[in-house]
């Protein structure tokens, strides 16, 4: 770890200003940043500790949603009675991430801004355009089991590791931010993260020093909410593919659908193509499979992650079927 300076922010406005220098960084729970600093993957020269700011409340909004303070811990959010009752998708996503100890420290804002788990990003002897712009991408022709199949570029195929953010995208959440100049704005979580393109080191649309103060959930989407996470072990592993869905069926047709994917892209992936393909269509395994295929039409594997294409197709279709209440396949029936 390299030497750095540290200050504890007393007010959000001051914090934003103090972290405007690109070599400065906010720190809240520190569950990701401290590890990366120890490994010298990240070496901020100055830390602005925002963990004591009064941003740890969950409040009802007039619209029927919730305003979640950026410092609400993942544990508190997952176990909030309103969340469990009305946005169960979010609770499930949170509880499928990390471990109880980490969730007790990790915050809502920090979760959105966690960094990729790409092996090459972590290994400071490897090239990585995200860690060291212009050095190349070690994963492209290396180990890429956990890497992106959608929206990647030749410069970076890393994925965003968050479960919570995937749920937030499916639920249409927005981040409330405060900029160093004191102005506030709202950014849809769906639009918060960027695709890597030629600048994989830029992961979000936030400006240096822009502080997430809260995440606002709109009223819940219609229908049944599910979060399905597929990973290499049953707990404490990042998603290979995850599916966040809110699905309503009327008659036998899909009347409302919000669908987002994790583990497949540089950002939580809103599955707009699948949503469009399914709206108004019969809620059958065939149409779910077709929608999954539509979403994955441009998906590309890089060798080690080729399996994510069939995996995503099958798990999207199976999760939609679960949300639609279709019974498990018959004994000798083919899997969806």
């Amino acid at each position: 770890m390299r030497a750095f300076t540290y200050e504890r922010a007393e007010a959000a406005e001051a914090a934003a200003g103090r972290a405007a220098d690109p070599s400065a960084s906010f720190i809240a729970g520190g569950t990701n940043l401290v590890d990366l600093m120890k490994l010298q993957v990240l070496s901020p020269s100055h830390l602005v500790d925002v963990s004591r700011l009064p941003l740890d409340r969950i409040e009802a909004t007039e619209e029927g949603g919730l305003r979640i303070g950026a410092l609400v811990t993942n544990s508190a959010l997952a176990n909030d009675e309103r969340i469990k009752a009305t946005w169960p998708l979010l609770s499930r996503a949170l509880l499928s991430g990390a471990t109880a100890q980490l969730r007790n420290k990790a915050t809502t804002g920090g979760n959105l801004l966690q960094r990729t788990r790409c092996y090459y990003f972590y290994d400071t002897t490897s090239p990585c355009n995200k860690r060291e712009p212009g050095s190349g991408c070690g994963a492209l022709e290396g180990f890429n089991r956990i890497h992106a199949i959608l929206g990647a570029s030749e410069h970076c195929i890393a994925t965003h590791p968050s479960d919570m953010a995937v749920a937030m995208v499916a639920l249409g959440a927005e981040a409330e931010t405060l900029r160093p100049d004191g102005r506030r704005r709202r950014v849809a979580v769906e639009a918060l993260h960027r695709l890597p393109g030629e600048r994989p080191e830029l992961e979000t649309v936030l400006e240096p020093g822009e502080l997430i103060e809260a995440v606002v959930l709109p009223p819940p989407p219609k229908g049944r909410q599910l979060y399905r996470k597929v990973r290499d072990r049953s707990s404490y592993a990042f998603a290979l593919v995850s599916v966040a869905v809110a699905l309503e069926v009327e008659g036998n047709a899909v009347s409302s659908l919000r669908l987002a994917l994790g583990g497949v892209a540089h950002k939580p992936w809103r599955a707009s193509r699948a949503e469009a393909a399914l709206l108004g269509q019969p809620a059958t395994r065939d149409s779910f499979r077709a929608a999954a295929e539509a979403e994955l039409a441009e998906a590309v594997g890089h060798g080690g992650n080729d399996f994510k294409l069939p995996l995503a197709r099958r798990v999207i279709a199976a999760t939609l079927a679960d949300a639609a209440g279709l019974t498990p396949e018959a004994e000798e029936g083919e899997p969806v």
Partner: peptide
């Protein structure tokens, strides 16, 4: 997981080198 281009193990921590967890 060894990157055979240069003989380096890549998943060098217990987050990515998976041992069974309780569950």
């Amino acid at each position: 997981m060894m990157d055979s281009r240069r003989g380096a193990f890549m998943n060098r921590d217990l987050a990515e080198y998976h041992l069974p967890v309780n569950r």
